[in-house]
Simulated scan of single mutants.
Amino acid sequence: MSKFRKEAIAFSLFFLAVLLIDIVIKINWDASLFRYISKGSLSILLIGYYTLFHKESSSVKQFFMTLALVFFLIGDIFFILYEIQLYYIFAIFSFGLAKLFYVFRFSNQSDFRVKQITPALTFCFLLMMLVMYLINDNLNDFFFPTLFYFFVTTLFVIFSFLRRDHVNRQSYNLVIIGVFFALGSDTLAALTSFYHSDIPYQNIAVMLFYGVSQLLIVLGIVKETNMAVEEGRVLNENEQFKD
């Protein structure tokens, strides 16, 4: 078992344990000091793990990834006080900015064909339209923040799919699965907040999906290998071998 694999498994188990503790605290002592510690710890763990084990060749990508995780941390803190409208709006914008920085981190300097993004765009658009249809009557002052968030989420999904031909398969799969968990969390959060507040196990599901999504995305980014760089390295090695 490789060093990365051992560290990834150990970190994942520890992260999931903290996530379960946070869920228990949310159910029993939401908006307490304990919740600030438990929920804040999740993003801090991800930032620490990424900082220690990332293999970013670009300082710009590292900057965007770090900013994304920092804004998720800020959003997490604001969401604890979601009953205060202003804090809820701040949380939505913080999460939106975090996903926007994920978009910047996922982007590659290459052209793409429309058919590459059609499946992801269609699925995301239909899902967002369905959710907006269900919650629209109850959004009120949250209409534009929610619209902004859904727009960024669509970009988030599209650019995660566009990584396919540029990174190794393991990294791509981890990030894509994480993106779908994020969509599940966002959908449930929107429905419970603005449509139906009695969905079974809503608190557990939203936090579990959110936490797992963040974990998988960070693991995927840490494991990422740029295929163009890797192919160039192999070609150079082959040429040196021939010489």
Rank of each mutant, 00 (worst) to 15 (best):
L46F: 12
L46W: 12
L46Q: 13
F142H: 02
L127D: 04
T153D: 11
F14G: 14
K223D: 15
R105I: 10
V229E: 09
L67R: 07
F194K: 03
F209H: 06
L19Q: 11
S32M: 01
L134E: 01
F71C: 06
D111L: 13
D137Y: 03
F95D: 02
V60F: 08
W29R: 11
M65I: 07
P200A: 04
W29T: 11
L127N: 04
Y36S: 00
E231C: 07
S12W: 03
F14C: 14
F241S: 05
N140D: 15
I27Q: 11
I92G: 09
F71A: 05
N168M: 08
A10Q: 04
S171P: 13
N168G: 11
W29V: 10
D141P: 12
L126W: 00
P145Y: 02
I217E: 05
T122H: 05
A182P: 04
L20D: 02
Q85E: 15
I23E: 02
F148A: 07
N138V: 03
I80C: 02
Q116A: 10
L174T: 10
V114Q: 11
A182Q: 10
D165F: 11
A189V: 13
Q109K: 15
G211Q: 01
Q62H: 05
L191F: 04
L97E: 09
Q170T: 15
D22C: 09
Y201G: 08
L235M: 08
L86V: 12
I204V: 13
L81P: 00
F181V: 07
L69N: 11
E224A: 12
G184M: 09
A205I: 14
F241I: 12
E56L: 11
F159V: 00
M129V: 14
T146Q: 01
V222A: 06
D137E: 12
P200H: 01
N108C: 08
F71N: 10
D111V: 14
A91T: 04
I74T: 09
P119C: 02
A182T: 09
D198H: 04
I84Y: 05
S2Y: 04
R164D: 13
F148G: 04
S58Q: 15
F79V: 04
G220S: 09
W29D: 11
L127E: 05
I37L: 08
F14E: 06
L155W: 00
Q214K: 01
V24P: 07
L20Q: 08
F161Q: 12
M129Q: 13
F104L: 09
F142L: 02
V175L: 06
F151L: 12
A228E: 14
Y87K: 06
F15C: 13
L147V: 13
L97F: 15
S38W: 14
T66Q: 04
T122Q: 00
N108M: 06
I89H: 02
E224C: 09
P119Y: 04
L215H: 08
I89Y: 05
M1C: 06
G232M: 10
G48M: 10
I21V: 10
N28V: 03
Q202L: 03
I80E: 01
H54K: 15
P145A: 01
K223M: 14
E237L: 14
E230I: 02
V206C: 01
R105F: 14
Y195N: 11
K39N: 09
L139M: 01
N236W: 07
